[in-house]
């Protein structure tokens, strides 16, 4: 069943990527092409095969000690240095509910 533009708009809204102009149309076409290309994988939902979630088969229980390490933390000015908007010691975002917000 092909994805409709409404479906694709829903996915884009969720993924926080605004689609503008003819992007919605193009994206819908692309996603349908791509999903078609993925069809061969559908034959592999085999009951007696374990899925591989990690390429290193027997890797397990990787943990670190509970200790602070010097030099890993970032000084405040460095931590904030790439932010588009800061206030005092904090990262700043505009109104969350704001005009047009739906949360």
């Amino acid at each position: 069943m092909a994805l409709t533009q409404t479906d694709v708009r829903g996915i884009a809204d969720y993924a926080r990527i605004a689609l503008e102009g003819d992007e919605l149309e193009q994206m819908t076409a692309y996603l349908n092409d791509a999903v078609d290309m993925l069809a061969p994988v559908l034959d592999y939902d085999l009951p007696d095969v374990e899925p591989t979630f990690h390429p290193i088969g027997d890797l397990a229980n990787v943990m670190r000690e509970d200790e602070e390490l010097a030099g890993r933390g970032l000084p405040l000015d460095v931590a904030l240095s790439n932010a588009g908007s800061v206030r005092d010691r904090s990262f700043r975002v505009p109104s969350i509910l704001g005009e047009g917000g739906d949360r």
Partner: peptide, 27 residues
């Protein structure tokens, strides 16, 4: 005006076409 708009437009204008395609396919 609000966070959702900022996020959606930042991502729409920050990412190129293929990056958007892969992310939406993944989502």
């Amino acid at each position: 005006p609000n966070l959702d708009t900022q996020s959606s437009l930042s991502r729409a204008h920050g990412f190129g076409a293929e990056a958007k395609r892969r992310q939406l396919l993944g989502a």
